[in-house]
Amino acid sequence: MSSLITSPPPSTEQPVGCQMLCLVGGPYVVRGGHRLNVPEGSKRLLAFIALHGGRVDRRQAAGTLWPEGSDERAAGNLRSAVWRLKSGGIDILLTDKQTLALRPGTQTDVNALCEWAGRLADGCSSIADLRILAWDPEAADILPGWYDEWVICERERIRQRLLHGLEAVVRELINIGRVGDAVEAAMNVVRFEPLRESAQRALIEAHLAEHNRIEARRAFERYSRLLAEEMGLMPSTELADLVTLPVTSL
């Protein structure tokens, strides 16, 4: 039976009694199985704290999030954002005169995802980590539509880490003989980033591991056409060699 799922990897599942700050499709907070919508005026603050390790300096946060105007006005906007959270029943922050921090026990989905990808890249994954992800690529975008510099840099870092994790899932599924699941997982990686050669390589290798050389060739030809149309480029010779070399050479 296929292990295709529509939920995040097990590392993002919320332990009993904890709350999770979600940036994928958010920001929003999950507590006790219930979704709490973050007030509009507080979203950027929570995202900033989550993407900076869960603790930030108040002045740094105020100056980055509200760069226009005086320091006093920025500090006032920060206090207002914190107040909106509490008024909305989202008691997720610990605050003092110098810092803002997520409460102990609060998880973030981006940290959980990065830890999951890290286990796979390091070869320390569990069977549960090998569940196939079936996300909509747009839904998996971190803070879509946000163009602040501090968001753009972190979004790309997390996206790359996630893609490496997904490709590692394919390799591990091939290694343990679950080649059908490996093909399915590889197709999900390609959906995320169809121009990424390492993703296409994972799909081709999965087809070859399943002894479907025709499917491997078709995947290579589709990628070749896409790459030529979108970028005016050709696949690497290393990728081309995969569809001409014997399966035993992989």
Rank of each mutant, 00 (worst) to 15 (best):
M1K: 08
M1A: 12
M1H: 11
S3C: 10
T6C: 10
P8Y: 07
P9M: 05
T12Q: 15
T12G: 06
E13S: 14
Q14F: 08
V16D: 13
M20L: 13
M20S: 13
C22K: 04
L23E: 03
Y28S: 05
Y28V: 08
Y28W: 11
R31G: 02
G33C: 05
L36K: 07
V38Q: 03
S42A: 15
S42C: 05
K43V: 01
K43Q: 14
R44P: 03
R44K: 15
L46P: 02
A47M: 04
L51R: 00
H52I: 03
V56N: 05
D57K: 11
D57C: 13
Q60T: 14
Q60L: 14
A62L: 05
G63C: 09
L65D: 06
P67L: 04
E68Y: 06
D71W: 06
E72A: 12
E72C: 01
A74L: 01
A75E: 12
G76H: 06
A81V: 03
A81G: 07
K86Y: 10
K86G: 08
S87N: 12
G88F: 05
G89I: 06
G89M: 08
I90S: 01
D91P: 01
L93Q: 00
L93G: 05
T95V: 15
D96G: 09
T99H: 14
A101P: 08
G105Y: 10
T106M: 11
Q107M: 15
D109H: 09
V110T: 14
A112I: 02
E115V: 14
A117C: 11
A117W: 04
G123T: 06
G123S: 06
A128I: 09
A128V: 08
D129V: 07
L130K: 03
L130M: 12
R131T: 12
I132W: 03
L133W: 11
L133P: 07
L133Y: 11
D136W: 04
P137E: 00
P137Q: 03
A139W: 09
A139G: 11
A139V: 11
P144F: 10
G145Q: 08
W146G: 04
Y147A: 10
D148P: 02
D148N: 06
V151M: 01
E154D: 10
R155N: 00
E156D: 13
R159M: 05
L162F: 15
L163A: 13
H164F: 13
V170P: 07
R171I: 09
L173W: 05
A182F: 09
E184T: 14
M187I: 08
V190K: 01
F192V: 10
F192E: 11
E197H: 06
S198F: 10
A199R: 03
A199V: 08
I204M: 07
E205M: 15
A206K: 02
H207P: 02
E210F: 12
E210A: 15
I214Y: 11
E215M: 12
E215Q: 14
A219H: 01
S224A: 10
S224R: 05
R225Y: 00
R225A: 00
L226C: 04
L226G: 00
E229H: 00
M231W: 06
P235I: 01
A240E: 12
L242W: 00
L242T: 02
P246N: 08
T248S: 11
T248N: 07
